[in-house]
């Protein structure tokens, strides 16, 4: 009984902060999502009509598709490269390891806005380094940020194949934003994996070596399973965060990209709220996004946590 009270006391400070600054605003926004509100003193109750309008809006479902492209583009690549780098950088006795760790972490600490501005210059069609490089190898420059064609469709164009819409892939413009996301996330994954790797006792590897396991085997049998709590954390975090990507989109394509192909959910939501002052509609959008993330996270926790190895 007493022990249980202690547990609640331990949670209290965090619960207080989250309660005041997160749950209350959340409830408030939920209430707003049933109204029409332009930030003025009056609000009109409109029932479910915001949700109804969203569900039939092709713009909204397009933005869901673009968001999914973004998540699927950023997540696996960042995790795999991050793990690879962490394995290369785990040995603290290696010369220059601190130097490399710092370098790979640099993109993470850069302000996302500054990074996006830098990328938009590098990918400037007329003046950017990317096209300069392509040009100096004799290739055709690419109109990165104004190209609305899906990248998979572009590949299949050569064979004269027209892919179904959903499989056409992110537009070239969105791909540039995905690249930026990968560039900024790799370091995050690396550092978290490094922290996770430190938790694996060296003795396990020694025991495995005595048993005659090679590198590949001990990686599969020891490293991967023991890293699974870390992987789960990264998987859940990256899904949640990249589902809400906004800053880079806003900076690199402030108008939502060529033919709106970079308008991810939160971009549309922000536009509805802070450009058109339709807070009810935007809130409804936020809660639809919320339910999608919730379902994905629940599935991740339910199906993957079962396979996660805790000590």
């Amino acid at each position: 009984m007493k022990k249980r009270a202690v547990a609640y006391l331990f949670i209290l400070p965090a619960a207080l902060v989250l309660g005041i600054f997160m749950f209350y605003p959340l409830a408030y926004s939920f209430m707003i999502s049933f109204t029409q509100w332009d930030l003025s003193a009056t609000r009109t109750y409109v029932g479910l009509s915001n949700y109804r309008a969203l569900i039939v809006s092709p713009d909204f479902w397009n933005s869901v598709l673009y968001t999914v492209y973004y998540v699927l583009g950023v997540l696996p690549v960042s995790l795999v490269i991050g793990l690879g780098l962490a394995l290369l950088l785990r040995d603290s006795s290696m010369r220059g390891v601190g130097f490399f760790r710092t370098i790979y972490f640099m993109p993470v600490v850069t302000s996302p806005i500054a990074a996006a501005m830098g990328f938009s210059w590098i990918f400037h069609t007329q003046l950017g380094y990317a096209n300069h490089l392509i040009d100096s190898f004799g290739g055709e420059p690419v109109n990165w940020l104004t190209n609305y064609n899906g990248i998979f469709q572009l590949l299949f164009d050569r064979f004269g194949v027209e892919l179904p819409r959903v499989l056409q892939g992110p537009s070239v413009a969105l791909t540039v934003i995905i690249l930026l996301g990968i560039w900024q996330n790799i370091g995050y994954a690396t550092v978290v994996y490094l922290a996770g790797l430190q938790g694996i006792p060296q003795t396990y590897y020694e025991a495995a070596r005595i048993d005659g396991a090679n590198w590949g085997k001990s990686f599969r049998r020891i490293t991967l399973p023991l890293l699974s709590p870390t992987t789960l954390f990264l998987l859940v975090m990256f899904t949640i965060l990249s589902f809400q990507v906004f800053g880079p989109v806003q900076v690199m394509t402030p108008q939502g990209g060529p033919l709106q192909t970079t308008s991810v959910i939160v971009f549309r939501l922000y536009q509805q709220a802070f450009a058109f002052y339709r807070f009810g509609y935007a809130s409804a959008m936020a809660f639809l996004a919320f339910s999608m993330i919730l379902i994905i996270t629940l599935m991740q926790l339910k199906y993957i946590e079962r396979r996660v190895h805790y000590d």
Partner: peptide, 18 residues
């Protein structure tokens, strides 16, 4: 006029004398 530049890129190109 450049079709393949965004608005921001266009401003940039103009400022840079292209």
């Amino acid at each position: 006029s450049p079709r393949d530049l965004t608005i921001e890129e266009g401003i940039q190109s103009f400022l840079m004398g292209r």
